[in-house]
Design a protein around this nucleic acid. Sequence first.
DNA 1: TTTATATATTGACCAAGGTCACGTTTTGAG
DNA 2: CTCAAAACGTGACCTTGGTCAATATATAAA
Lengths: 197, 197
Amino acid sequence: MPRAPQKRRLETRAKLLTVARSIVEDQGYSALRVEDVVAQAGVAKGTFFAHFGDKDGLLAVILGARVTEFLDEMDAAPKPEQTSDIAALLAPLLDFIAQDRVIFDLLLRYSGTTGTEIDELITQSFLRQITMFADWIAGLQARGQVRPDQDPILLAEGIQAFLNHVLAIGFCMDHEKQPPAEAILPYLRIWLAEARD
Amino acid sequence: MPRAPQKRRLETRAKLLTVARSIVEDQGYSALRVEDVVAQAGVAKGTFFAHFGDKDGLLAVILGARVTEFLDEMDAAPKPEQTSDIAALLAPLLDFIAQDRVIFDLLLRYSGTTGTEIDELITQSFLRQITMFADWIAGLQARGQVRPDQDPILLAEGIQAFLNHVLAIGFCMDHEKQPPAEAILPYLRIWLAEARD
DNA sequence: TTTATATATTGACCAAGGTCACGTTTTGAG
DNA sequence: CTCAAAACGTGACCTTGGTCAATATATAAA
């Protein structure tokens, strides 16, 4: 049974997070350096790792919060009424992830965590994302916009797959780069609509 | 117009590759260290990078060859007659990639390269993979096993997406890990079959 | 053969993430 | 209040991928 963290620890953590967020804000995620963070926060290097385990741990906290904000916005927005609305709702999140490979790589590392370790914010956000997708899909199924013969959860996980797919492709081809929300639409149409022949 | 490489260079490259392959064989991909490779090959560190650019460059050469072997086997095998045959044909390649996250990460970095830079072996293998999938799909469409209303190329790229998806999930959950070839089947069935309602 | 130029190799050096034995501060039991 | 244990923080040190000016070797023209 771990004891509650001391005030000092919380302050140190807050300092590190504040500095890290400020660096990210004006230099981007891939410019984030552990040494810079601890220097500006005025703590030793070891302290950083005692708090976040490794660099990805810090990133996971920051990204988890950021992704959660996007999910909040999606939740607040009107529910999709057709397949293309899903792509539109996804656009802000996709653009955010597409802005830096570091983000994509980190998120991908957690993107399949549908199980334990619920303590991680970023893991929770993935569970929430799947739930939200499934909810959208159920709604569209009721409206006759999406094939009704499949489990919404499974269809939601498929969307996750396409989401990562278009992002990965986006990072490979610098040229002819269409926005990811546009690139995902053809996949969604096939995935969600019934075949007409 | 670059001149042809000297004999000495080819020998050095061969030495590095031989050593690297041997290390990979009995210690695995994630145990591969550049310093070990150059030490055992009896060359300086700088030489390594003059040949392969970075560590991933070496890995790309080795993995590209390995993946090409898998594709050769798939090409030699009988064509799929139903959706589940695709999963079966994919199994060896999936198991190979699933064995080590390093492999997956490296391959993912190239997995969307459907454009230029044809010189890279690993890039070619991806183009070939898509072509092969599309060929299988066209065959199955002709047999009435797969929805005939969609472009085989697009459906092939979707398979690629699901392939990466089940691999990513496999790395996240160590527990309850079913083989990736099994995990991909539900997605393939929905993706390739027409909706029945 | 001589020699200028392109090609290959070298190894000291750097960057940046990560470790850990140790010192310092906080906490709670007696 | 005292003191031992737990929690917290420190910074020297390690690991490993990667760089680059200098050096050595090969090539081909004169």
